[in-house]
Design a protein around this nucleic acid. Structure first.
Lengths: 359, 359
DNA sequence: TGTATTTGCTTAAACGTTTAAGCAATATTT
DNA sequence: AAATATTGCTTAAACGTTTAAGCAAATACA
């Protein structure tokens, strides 16, 4: 009898609030507290399964929260707790399978720990990268995981992140001078491996359409290429080493340049798969048989490399592992109280996937 | 003399605070207020150029803010003001030039009004799209501008946005049932235009590699194609109409299917440029001359369409205008007090860009 | 039985901002 | 000179949450 009375009483209070639902006023923890005649603090604790709240209260709170369609205000909790549970991710672009796979895995690891991610793209532009960092800092992210734009040489905007005491993790496109955690593959070794593979197939004039020298990873690939050439006493000509932005379009342009040489190469190693695809198109348009007349190797193991004909030999960068490691590095940084970042490199070995284009 | 004394006094206070900079404590307006011996309210107003604050105070506040490297806490102001100045953008993917250009223009328009954007990608996945919406609502965005994933049929997660009273604007991939603002091009007419262009070139068996029927825009393109075929009394065969996810890879696969038919088509209209590129690759690998043996038309006017040879005829979707219109629609919605969204379509006319592949 | 511990809450302050209201002091108008 | 308006601030509350501290009541322990 008494219980029934109480129930009816509560139902009345509830319906009063549900009526107000129409008038767009946001439901807060206070509203739930009012319905149940308990304090907002108790509601907050109940929603977070605090051990000092009775099971009965917890259930009641959760039921009312659901009935009222309560949505927690992230701004308020972030402000109070001093952390936003948001992590910013900056990539040059999201179109490549490599970056989107890294992002996917970052997200997977971080979601499990209650973090959400905000993705931004620099489009390889320094200016855009700065703007992205500003947006992320503005949003009060708890950390930033980034891969640098091609254009970036000045690092002051990254220093800004560090100076705010926010964990910064770099992957793929990193920079030693920043003294932060870095996750990547062994570009030098991978490059070396590619050249030796081509040499083993009898190639004598191996060209390299590389990325920009100023970007560390591309520089490493170029060094790996040069050292392997030197090691095997092959002739090196300046014309055979080309810098490129590694887009499909530029791959076409640079390949055409190589074909215009007096002495054409017998193999081309392109530091990116999209540019390699462009190169392949030009070769086919010029009726040059791949791999018979010219061997071709890409980098990145984009899905299409196995789909085109001939399929393109490439390097698998273990994007999933890189993403997971980056996220885990962030988590371990926020868990360790005294944030003092240092240059900690995690270098994964890459894998050469040999396909028709170099057989 | 007095001024000098005051200056020295302030410098001392300042230096005390600057010393504390090293101990990572965040600088707030309170700190600035302490340095200058004024109230936090005055600082806030000074930073916002309130007319009731003297020029002298404003300058002093801004100087100290800079010296202390003050960064406003967005969470606090968002909480207090009840708006985050953040707008969420959801796209199927950011790789296509169309979407990245739309995003760029959204950003340009919104930045001018003090808004920042958060980009999320659905990767054409319904599940991912729901997760994106949750992240954006969690971040308390002031509005959402979205283009729907291919997979999406259930609209309840979009209804969730509407029910929270947050402006929702759809573009390109929209859905009438949601009754919100929509910006797009006239897909039906564009499709019609393409078919008539091909007919004018003497084509009799025109195939269409289209998107998924369930997606409104692709359905419209299919209807435009069918109606144009019917209007000109061309024969229609089921085999000539194919559904595709419009990736480069699938373009290759579907083109191959068309080539395997007993009676091959003499023209192919592909509803996306990437898939059109894939189709072109297959045609060239099979030594089919484009446009002589087979005419080809794409959709979207991606930059590479003009770069490949033969260059590909395509439809310019006016991505910049779409982005600007979407952003402006959002702005006008937040400015109008009583947010009551209705199905307001802004349909732009598209433009057929005729290139070598259909000449 | 009395004492210590645990349970289940409440109170109140805090996070960093913005803003309505108010109040002197100064400037302008009559 | 008195009345009014403007300038330049301050005070205090608010946004919605979390959390340290505290306090009764219930339970456990000796």
């Amino acid at each position: 009898m008494i219980i029934q009375t109480i129930t009816i009483y509560l139902l009345k209070r509830l319906s009063k609030y549900i009526k107000n639902l129409n008038t767009k006023k946001k439901i807060t923890i206070k509203d739930i507290a009012n319905v149940l005649n308990i304090s907002p603090a108790a509601v907050s604790k109940a929603l977070h399964d605090d051990s000092r709240i009775s099971k009965k209260t917890k259930e009641a709170v959760k039921k009312v929260a659901k009935d009222l369609n309560y949505q927690p205000n992230h701004l308020a909790s972030a402000l109070r707790k001093g952390k936003s549970n948001l992590v910013g991710v900056i990539v040059p672009r999201t179109n490549s399978n490599f970056f989107s796979s890294v992002i996917e895995n970052i997200e997977e690891v971080l979601n499990k720990e209650g973090y959400h991610i905000i993705i931004t793209q620099s489009n390889e532009s320094y200016k855009k990268e700065c703007a992205n960092i500003d947006t992320l800092l503005f949003t009060q992210v708890d950390g930033i995981i980034a891969s640098m734009a091609n254009e970036t040489v000045d690092l002051s905007h990254y220093e800004k992140i560090k100076s705010k005491g926010i964990p910064l993790i770099l992957f793929d496109r990193g920079e030693n001078d920043l003294n932060v955690d870095y996750i990547g593959i062994n570009d030098y070794d991978s490059s070396h491996m590619i050249v030796e593979h081509l040499i083993s197939k009898g190639c004598k004039r191996i060209a390299h359409i590389g990325g920009f020298k100023r970007t560390r990873i591309f520089n490493n690939r170029i060094r790996g290429y040069l050292d392997a050439i030197k090691k095997h006493h092959l002739s090196f000509e300046n014309d055979l080493l080309i810098e490129s932005d590694l887009t499909l379009e530029d791959g076409r342009i640079q390949m055409q340049k190589l074909l215009n040489l007096n002495k054409q190469p017998d193999a081309v190693y392109v530091a990116g798969d999209y540019a390699a695809l462009g190169a392949l198109q030009i070769l086919q348009e010029n009726n040059i048989k791949v791999p018979d007349d010219m061997r071709l190797v890409g980098f990145g193991n984009e899905p299409f490399t196995s789909l085109v004909s001939p399929s393109i030999t490439s390097i698998n960068q273990h994007s999933a592992d890189i993403g997971k490691l980056a996220a885990e590095t962030f988590l371990s940084l926020v868990k360790s109280e005294n944030l003092k970042q240092s240059l900690t490199k995690k270098i994964l070995d890459a894998e050469l996937i040999i396909r028709d284009s170099s057989k």
